[in-house]
Simulated scan of single mutants.
Amino acid sequence: MSDKTAQAERLRQRFALYDTNGDGRIERGDLEAEARRIVEAFGEEENSPKARALLQAYPHMWDYMMEQAGRDAGEALTVEQFVEIADAQMLSRGAVGFSTVLRPSIRAMVDLCDIDGDGQVDPQEFRKWLGAIGNDRIDADEAFRQVDTDGNGRLSVDELVAAVGKYHAGELDARCWVSDARTHGRARSGGGSLGEPRSPTPAVPAGDEDGLRSAEAPGTGRRAVSAGPAPETGRLLVRAALVLLSLGQGVPGAWALFAPRSFHDAFPLPAFAWLTKFPPYNEHLVRDLGALSLGLTTVLLWAAVRPERSLVRAAAFGCLAFTVPHLVFHVAHLGRFETVDVVGQLISQVAPIMVAGMVILLSRRISGAGL
């Protein structure tokens, strides 16, 4: 097997590691999920400084590679696209490429298993490393010896970065950063970091059309069901919800900004004219309301186009910051309205709150970060 073939094969194995649902695509949220799995395997709390460093390093690695490739971080990649980008950003650039892309995540991994706080990994800590990535069946001493190039009995970040680079370049077989092929089954819930493929996720069987993902729990013969849509379905739902919220803000916002008198006298329909119950008319305030609504619309649409977890959550919480106080005010003044108006107001004002809350919940499943 030529070096190029071996390199491409190891990148494909790494792709398979991240493709946890077996759909032939990976995205930012897959790396976030892998980082959370490693943190859990180390027994670290997610809000600890060491855990946060790893949870930030993995998606940052994705963002950097996608940016350098001229792609949107919210895109999903096929195996061919991933191999092409990884080859261009790491293999083709040699040691510099691997250091630029991987050093932050390796540094974070070292900090997670560094018991004595010396910034390096000793043999005992290295065994902890291997166990956390699901690779505790290999000869730890031999792997340590191959990576410890200066022979001082400690692995530095530089040595580990170099080892990962040499592994993916086909120059080293020490699997200090990949899961052992014999641990594939366990890798689904506690597998490796860079390298060997996991077992493909079973397709959702008939009867699971509600979107629940199910698979047979190992050793039980029963179906283990995890609630919630798959990452790609979750992303589509989030995008649709954000577009819906943007319409709820954008349509009345444009009306108020460009035709403030008409908005005041006829919103939501001329037969109802809710705003006339709160005189007097003030053109300045109505136009400002319209402009602010359009500003929120811009953020919501931006999040729909680039559904990264932090942006999606910011947009959803921004929507709640407006809609919740708005609902509270109207609930306190429902006595001014007929029953049909009360029902219409409650529906129109509770709905966006529920949709924004759904977006926040679903954002856990995107890059999702994208979550």
Rank of each mutant, 00 (worst) to 15 (best):
F337Y: 03
L292K: 04
A224P: 01
E27I: 05
G295A: 11
D116E: 11
L311K: 13
L292H: 06
A187Q: 12
G131P: 04
A108L: 08
Y64I: 00
E196T: 14
G250S: 06
W129L: 15
F144C: 03
A271S: 14
A254C: 03
T276G: 00
A273Q: 03
F267W: 15
A41C: 07
A321E: 07
D87A: 09
R198L: 13
E46T: 14
V359S: 11
Q345F: 10
G207V: 02
W274I: 09
G70S: 00
Y167P: 00
I360L: 15
D63S: 09
N47E: 15
A271W: 03
D122Y: 05
H264V: 10
Q81E: 14
V342Y: 05
A227I: 08
S199P: 07
G70P: 00
I85V: 15
D111Q: 06
T201Y: 15
S310W: 01
R309P: 06
P268L: 10
R198T: 13
D173P: 00
D141S: 13
W62K: 00
E84H: 12
M90Y: 02
A230S: 13
V343N: 08
V110Q: 01
D63P: 03
D19N: 13
D23K: 11
A227L: 04
D158L: 08
R127D: 09
L257W: 08
G335R: 10
L31I: 01
L292T: 11
L160K: 02
G170P: 06
Y58N: 05
R365C: 08
L289E: 06
A16I: 05
L257S: 01
G344E: 11
R222F: 13
E67Q: 02
E84T: 13
V355F: 07
T100P: 01
R37F: 07
F258M: 13
R182G: 11
Q349A: 07
A230R: 10
R287M: 14
S214F: 04
R175L: 03
F322P: 06
H60N: 14
A51M: 10
Q124I: 12
G219T: 11
V83F: 02
F329H: 15
E44N: 03
E142S: 14
W129N: 11
V101L: 08
V79L: 06
T5E: 01
D173C: 00
L334T: 01
G70D: 00
A351E: 10
A169Y: 06
D136C: 07
C319F: 08
L361V: 15
G211M: 01
V355N: 09
A271V: 04
D30M: 10
R175V: 02
R107M: 05
F272Y: 14
A224I: 09
L155R: 05
G119L: 02
N21L: 10
L102S: 08
L320P: 10
L361R: 14
A162F: 04
R235C: 12
S193I: 00
G228T: 10
P252H: 07
H168S: 00
R182A: 15
F337T: 00
S246L: 03
L300I: 06
A230Y: 05
F15K: 04
E142H: 13
H333P: 08
L346E: 13
E171F: 01
R365P: 05
G153F: 03
Q7V: 15
L320H: 11
D150S: 09
G74H: 01
D141I: 02
W255A: 14
A356Q: 07
I85H: 03
A206W: 01
E308W: 05
L77T: 05
A314G: 06
C319V: 07
